[in-house]
C-alpha cells in the first residue's frame, strides 16, 4: 500500500486520472485543436473558393504569367458580367457554373450508385495525370459540389475532365454494359438506369436546397425562381441514364485554363 499515493507522473496527470470530469474536459480540449487549425482557416483564407453567393469571394485570386490578377469571373461564371447571361447560353470556358437540372439529377444518381468509390474527380498536379486526364483540378471547380465527390480510389479512371470526351451514345452503351465496349472493365452494368425516370420533384427540391446552403450556395440569380420552375420541363420523360450522362458530360470543361498559370496559388 505504501506506493499507493505516490505519483509517478505529474500532479496534474494524477488529478486528471482521479476525476472523470477533468479527464473529460482535458480530452475534449486536446482533440479539438488539430481540427480547428486545419478546418477553420479554409472558411476564410483566400484560395479556398468560398463565395458569398453573389459574385464575391474570400479574396481568392489567380495571377497570369505577367503577374496580373485574372478576374474571378473568368474562373467562376458570373451572369452579371459574362456575355452569356443564362444557363442555356453558357459555353464551356465561361467559368464554373452550377449544374443544370438534368445534370443535378444525374449527380444524385451518381452518388446513389457509389460511382465515387471507383472514380475520382480530382486531378493532382502531376505530369502523368496531366497527360492522362488533363489540367489539374482547382478549388473553384467543386465549389458548387455540395457533398464533394473527389473520391479516394481509382478503380476506374479519374473523370474530372470527362465532359465531351465521348458521345452520349457511347456513354449509354458503356454504362449499360461496360464490358461490351471495354472488355477488361470491372465496372458493374448499370443498364437499369435506363428503366427509371428521373425524380422531378426531388430535383427541383434539390435546386431550392442548393440556394439555401450556408456555405457556397448557388446564387439565387442563377437558380432563380423561374429557372427552378422551368426545371420540370427540362426533366420531362428523361431517364436516369439521360441524367447521369448529362452529368458526366458537364464535367471539367468549365474553366478555360491558360498554359503555365499557377491556379492554386
Amino acid at each position: 500500500m505504501s506506493d499507493h499515493d505516490h505519483i509517478y507522473s505529474t500532479k496534474f496527470q494524477d488529478k486528471v486520472e482521479r476525476s472523470t470530469l477533468v479527464m473529460f474536459i482535458m480530452t475534449a480540449l486536446t482533440v479539438a485543436v488539430g481540427g480547428i487549425v486545419e478546418i477553420v482557416p479554409l472558411f476564410y483564407l483566400p484560395n479556398t473558393a468560398m463565395s458569398g453567393g453573389d459574385g464575391t469571394f474570400n479574396g481568392t485570386q489567380h495571377k497570369d504569367l505577367q503577374g496580373n490578377v485574372i478576374p474571378m469571373d473568368k474562373i467562376v461564371w458570373n451572369p452579371a458580367t459574362s456575355e452569356h447571361k443564362s444557363m442555356d447560353d453558357w459555353q464551356p470556358g465561361d467559368g464554373v457554373r452550377p449544374y443544370k437540372p438534368l445534370e443535378l439529377a444525374g449527380r444524385q444518381v451518381f452518388i446513389r450508385e457509389g460511382c465515387f468509390l471507383c472514380h475520382s474527380q480530382m486531378i493532382r498536379p502531376f505530369r502523368d495525370e496531366k497527360d492522362r486526364y488533363g489540367h489539374y483540378s482547382i478549388a473553384e471547380e467543386s465549389m458548387y459540389d455540395h457533398t464533394y465527390q473527389w473520391g479516394s480510389k481509382r478503380t476506374g479512371p479519374d473523370i474530372a475532365r470527362l465532359g465531351g470526351k465521348y458521345s452520349d451514345e457511347w456513354h449509354r452503351k458503356h454504362l449499360k454494359y461496360p464490358r461490351d465496349v471495354v472488355p477488361e472493365s470491372v465496372m458493374p452494368n448499370f443498364f437499369f438506369l435506363e428503366n427509371a425516370k428521373v425524380d422531378v420533384e426531388k430535383t427541383t427540391k434539390t435546386m431550392a436546397v442548393m440556394t439555401k446552403m450556408p456555405f457556397n450556395p448557388v446564387p439565387k440569380t442563377i437558380y432563380s425562381a423561374e429557372y427552378i420552375a422551368a426545371a420540370p420541363e427540362a426533366l420531362k420523360d428523361k431517364t436516369e441514364m439521360d441524367a447521369v450522362i448529362a452529368f458526366l458530360q458537364s464535367l471539367g470543361n468549365h474553366v478555360k485554363f491558360e498554359e503555365g498559370v499557377n491556379y492554386r496559388d
Binding site: 486545419e38 478546418i39 471547380e141 457533398t147 426531388k202 446552403m213 456555405f215 457556397n216
Partner: peptide, 23 residues
C-alpha cells in the same frame, strides 16, 4: 440539408467539405 427522407446534401462543398470529411 435534407431534400426528402432519402436524400440530403452536405452544407459544405468542395474544399471545405473534403477537409471535414477526411478530418
Amino acid at each position: 440539408i435534407p431534400v426528402d427522407w432519402a436524400t440530403s446534401y452536405s452544407i459544405y462543398s468542395g474544399v471545405q467539405d473534403a477537409m471535414i470529411q477526411w478530418w
